[in-house]
Nucleic acid binder design. Structure first.
Length: 190
DNA sequence: CTTTGGATTGTCT
DNA sequence: GACAATCCAAAGA
């Protein structure tokens, strides 16, 4: 256990920092969307000088939220099929929320995903967004207001770290974080 | 303008 | 392990 960010400070200050730091300290936080959610167990950091980041070539219609204020959502369409949820940090940087341990609203998640197995409800960014009902409607929305609720932990649990998933550029950077021992990760760490 | 390929997932072999 | 689904931004011509 390490000392984490002082959660008595507001979320805007928490997110107005380096995305890699934020990504690690989000592990174990509680995220719900209209009461449906659980513990964040996997994240990835993306930064403006990072070739794998959507913000690498500057602001565009799609990535506008990444350049907006911190503590807001950035939602994008992945492979033309899925939605993926990010939390905006400093301008041009964000944290992709990759996996969640379901805690509340599990029946709602099961209905949205048409799947019983709780281990697979939120194991991956596309699955997570589907289970939480995330779409473009949430792009640019504040994380401090409904439907979002985000509660940080007072201390961050033991985390794993490794290369990010599914990218072809900057594949060596160890900017993926996971909750050690969690059964709800999208992929194993090694 | 056309082509390429992606911060993914479900299904089939 | 292989591949299709399906949209659209980015890159090429």
């Amino acid at each position: 256990m390490r000392t984490a960010f002082d959660s008595t400070l507001d979320l805007t200050a928490f997110f107005d920092r380096d995305a890699v730091t934020v990504a690690q300290e989000l592990i174990g936080a509680t995220l719900t969307v209209e009461g449906v959610g659980g513990l964040i167990v996997e994240t990835e950091a993306y930064r403006p000088e990072d070739p794998a980041s959507h913000s690498f070539r500057g602001e565009s219609a799609r990535n506008r939220a990444m350049f907006g204020p911190p503590a807001h959502a950035y939602v994008y369409r992945s492979y033309g099929i899925h939605w993926c949820l990010n939390f905006v940090c400093r301008p041009g940087s964000a944290v992709l929320i990759r996996a969640l341990e379901p805690v509340t609203g599990i029946d709602t998640m099961r209905a949205r995903r048409r799947l019983e197995n709780p281990v697979l409800l939120c194991a991956g960014p596309g699955r997570l967004a589907q289970a939480l009902g995330i779409s473009l409607a949430e792009d640019g929305a504040s994380l401090l207001e409904p439907p979002f609720s985000l509660t940080l932990r007072h201390s961050v649990p033991d985390t794993l770290c490794g290369p990010r998933i599914g990218i072809t550029k900057a594949i060596e950077l160890p900017w993926r974080f996971g909750l050690k021992g969690s059964a709800y990760l999208s992929k194993r760490f090694r």
